[in-house]
Design a protein around this nucleic acid. Structure first.
Lengths: 341, 341
DNA sequence: CTGAAAGCGCTAACAG
DNA sequence: CTGTTAGCGCTTTCAG
């Protein structure tokens, strides 16, 4: 810990007015001699401009906030990477806030309200649940907000979405092509935005396919919840399923564990697919087939929308979309030695 | 996006002076009637105090920064959880900054310099590499800094450490007790603080044990680097190793993959252990034996040191330590069917 | 090119 | 209990 020098002290030491010192340091009009004196004084004193004072004066903080629900999910880490790349290039600092207490929607609302205090010049938000209250709160936020996810039509907010319904459909069609005919959908909470979209994708996909389909909900989008729900799916009475389509990688990995617990060979007896294509897909065994929603790209796009809107607050809100892409890996191989075990 | 009301406007609407408005809102002396009027006016206007103005006036931001090198590593996510718990309870907001560009030390130095601008009231830092420059920069930082890691003696900085050398020794002793006698140490970069400490732990442990030991360095503390280095270890000429002690979980999982690539049964032919006991340890198969360094606890302790120092900047610097704890899982089971395959 | 002065929004003496 | 006033550190007119 050390002390902080103020511009006044720098000016004094340089023997110029505080205004000249400011100009010299900011590269505005100033004679070379002044610039030199001031620079030297600033160096000597270890002067660094105060962020609060500057923010107060300028009405801008130079910071951008990225708010995530569950920082333990690699999806958000990837998004953050994308956001950071763009944001840093535009000269902003990125700060990350985890909203993910247990209070969920309430936490996000609190965050939005606190953003009104002017901590940052812009906000990237990826909410799990979208309520009317949330949309209203976004509208009432005095700084630009970009949402990664899906908002009601006409919300008038810059948005980056992805067609996760189509993504789930890709997984289903792939499994069908591999000969799977008894497919279970392992969803997270259906009242979340991704939960609803993915369910829709599953329903649509199985509607015009000759498969026996069922849908199940885990308590949340975590591995533990997925494992538990998958246990129920795999031990249910009747003919066993030969594929589980999970709504995200964490749930899928839970399913992989449940299969292992029950001695079911994957992919021999059961195929499993995830969504998000996180780094976890490659660390499990067998490697997980997963639908990439390109989180990093979504982060980049969101940050671009945000910086553009900060520059020009009047531009029309824009909605961008990133297409899903299926990555086939070992967990859904075409039943190599069918009926094994 | 909406507009922001100022205290002056609230005071005007309530028909009182700006000072009274401030007092009423902050719960200082004010007549009930005034409080009521001001509250109502503030609500009507959607008034929220401006963070920059308040920070400038008070000389404090109410924010705490947690700086991490690699936000993709679950260790830091857990630390963050711990920090957040304590920091929120003390009424601070937490902001996370990822320093982990490719420039490493330089990034951390930049961050420290930028902290001088007064973005936050305190900083929790977990640096991978500690240089004299870093220590100097910490000393020059005008806000309290707490380091999670290890600093040179007498650095005079609040620190939370863990005995990771002892942690590695625990792993080695465990493997020895299981009958493993040819043990390879899979380290990350040896010039990092954890790298150096863990290596020391390994060397000390094997010194008084009847084992054949070897040490290897991966390019960094990632799974990919671990896999690559483990490949080399496992395909080297001479008698094969029967255990790999990895310096963290990511490296250990890389080793697990390498073993799988080579068709080596774990734990039958090869035992593998990690360090950090992250959530990944339980998602891989076989589950990974790992030494817990209780990242969350370290985060909590660091945050406690920090809030205490913010309250009382004069207190003597303190060094806290969290003991390592071995979690035995499937990856190091006692050679169940020795000499299989 | 430079200095004096105003003021961003807020809190905290200080008088009344 | 309340209003007036002085700044926190900085940028930016506005005159010189």
């Amino acid at each position: 810990m050390a002390h902080r020098a103020t511009l006044t002290q720098v000016a004094q030491r340089a023997g110029v007015s505080i205004a000249s010192a400011s100009r010299a340091l900011n590269g505005l009009v100033a004679s070379p001699a002044t610039v030199d004196k001031v620079r030297r004084a600033a160096d000597d004193l270890g002067y660094v401009p105060d962020a609060s004072a500057r923010a107060l004066k300028m009405g801008a903080t130079g910071q951008i906030t990225f708010a995530v629900d569950d920082i333990g999910n690699p999806v958000y880490v990837e998004m953050m990477t994308g956001v950071q790349e763009v944001v840093a290039a535009s000269g902003f600092r990125l700060q990350v806030t985890a909203t993910g207490g247990t209070r969920d929607v309430a936490d996000v609302l609190d965050l939005l309200r606190s953003m009104r205090r002017g901590y940052a010049d812009g906000l990237v938000l990826s909410p799990l649940r979208v309520t009317a209250e949330l949309v209203a709160e976004i509208a009432a936020t005095p700084i630009p907000v970009v949402v990664i996810g899906r908002l009601p039509d006409g919300a008038g907010v810059d948005t980056v979405m992805t067609d996760s319904a189509r993504g789930v459909a890709l997984a289903v069609e792939h499994l069908h092509a591999q000969g799977r005919r008894r497919i279970a959908f392992l969803n997270g909470p259906g009242d979340t935005t991704p939960g609803a979209a993915r369910r829709r994708g599953f329903d649509d996909a199985v509607a015009h396919l000759d498969v026996v389909a069922s849908t199940h909900e885990a308590a949340d989008f975590t591995m533990a919840a997925g494992r538990e729900a998958a246990h129920r799916i795999l031990t249910a009475a009747g003919r066993p399923v030969d594929a589980i389509v999970a709504a995200n990688d964490l749930l899928a990995i839970g399913a992989l564990h449940a299969a292992h617990d029950l001695g079911l060979d994957v992919p021999g007896r059961l195929a499993v697919t995830g969504v998000d294509d996180t780094s976890l897909a490659e660390i499990v065994h067998p490697p997980l087939t997963s639908v990439s929603l390109d989180s990093r790209r979504r982060g980049q796009l969101a940050a671009e929308l945000l910086t553009r809107r900060i520059e020009d607050p009047t531009r029309a809100p824009q909605v961008l979309s990133v297409p899903p892409l299926l990555h086939v890996r070992g967990s859904s191989a075409p039943t190599p030695q069918a009926g094994n075990r």
